[in-house]
Simulated scan of single mutants.
Amino acid sequence: MEPTLEQVIADYDEAAPLAEAATIPGPWYTDARVAELERRTVWSRS
């Protein structure tokens, strides 16, 4: 079963201490739903 968009986004822990920091989760690069969300929220004004 495919995770929901909310689950994909929740995989990132923005509160992690710098010593435990990591890049964003892999699905953020490949999930079409994340791309659409970015298009609507980040790039909609350009």
Rank of each mutant, 00 (worst) to 15 (best):
Met1Asp: 14
Met1Cys: 12
Met1Asn: 15
Met1Tyr: 13
Glu2Leu: 08
Glu2Trp: 00
Glu2Gln: 13
Glu2Phe: 00
Pro3Asp: 07
Pro3Tyr: 01
Thr4Tyr: 05
Leu5Phe: 07
Leu5His: 04
Glu6Ala: 14
Glu6Asp: 12
Gln7Arg: 02
Gln7Thr: 00
Val8Gly: 06
Val8Lys: 00
Val8Gln: 01
Ile9Arg: 00
Ile9Asp: 07
Ala10Val: 01
Ala10Thr: 01
Ala10Phe: 03
Ala10His: 02
Asp11Gly: 05
Asp11Ile: 00
Asp11Val: 00
Tyr12Gln: 02
Tyr12Val: 06
Tyr12Asp: 07
Tyr12Trp: 09
Tyr12Leu: 10
Tyr12Ile: 05
Asp13Pro: 03
Asp13Glu: 13
Asp13Leu: 01
Asp13Thr: 00
Asp13Gly: 00
Asp13His: 15
Asp13Lys: 04
Glu14Ala: 11
Glu14Gly: 14
Glu14Asn: 10
Glu14Phe: 12
Glu14Met: 14
Ala15Thr: 15
Ala15His: 15
Ala15Leu: 15
Ala15Ile: 08
Ala15Lys: 15
Ala16Leu: 12
Ala16Asn: 11
Ala16Val: 07
Pro17Trp: 07
Pro17Val: 14
Pro17Glu: 14
Pro17Thr: 12
Pro17Tyr: 06
Pro17Phe: 13
Leu18Ile: 15
Leu18His: 08
Leu18Pro: 11
Leu18Cys: 10
Leu18Val: 10
Leu18Gly: 08
Ala19Gln: 13
Ala21Tyr: 05
Ala21Asp: 11
Ala21Asn: 07
Ala21His: 05
Ala21Lys: 10
Ala22Ile: 06
Ala22Leu: 10
Ala22Val: 10
Ala22Lys: 15
Ala22Phe: 01
Ala22Cys: 11
Ala22Pro: 03
Thr23Ser: 13
Thr23Pro: 00
Thr23Ile: 10
Thr23Met: 11
Ile24Asp: 13
Ile24Trp: 14
Ile24Gly: 10
Pro25Asp: 10
Pro25Val: 05
Pro25Arg: 02
Gly26Leu: 12
Gly26Asn: 10
Gly26Arg: 14
Pro27Lys: 08
Pro27Glu: 04
Pro27Asp: 09
Pro27Thr: 07
Pro27Phe: 02
Trp28Arg: 14
Trp28Asn: 07
Trp28Tyr: 04
Tyr29Gly: 12
Thr30Ser: 14
Thr30Asn: 14
Thr30Gly: 01
Thr30Arg: 11
Thr30Leu: 04
Thr30Cys: 05
Asp31Thr: 01
Asp31Leu: 00
Asp31Val: 01
Asp31Cys: 01
Ala32Phe: 12
Arg33Gln: 03
Arg33Pro: 03
Val34Gly: 04
Ala35Leu: 00
Ala35Glu: 09
Ala35Asn: 09
Ala35Tyr: 05
Ala35Thr: 03
Ala35Pro: 00
Glu36Phe: 04
Glu36Ala: 11
Glu36Arg: 05
Leu37Asn: 01
Leu37Pro: 01
Glu38Asp: 09
Glu38Ile: 10
Glu38Leu: 09
Arg39Trp: 13
Arg39Glu: 15
Arg39Met: 13
Arg39His: 12
Arg39Thr: 12
Arg40Val: 13
Arg40Cys: 02
Arg40Gly: 09
Arg40Tyr: 02
Thr41Arg: 10
Thr41Ala: 06
Thr41Lys: 06
Val42His: 02
Val42Met: 08
Val42Gln: 07
Trp43Asp: 07
Trp43Ile: 01
Trp43Thr: 04
Ser44Pro: 05
Ser44Glu: 08
Ser44Phe: 04
Ser44Gln: 08
Arg45Gln: 09
Arg45Asn: 05
Arg45Phe: 04
Ser46Asp: 12
Ser46Val: 13
Ser46His: 13
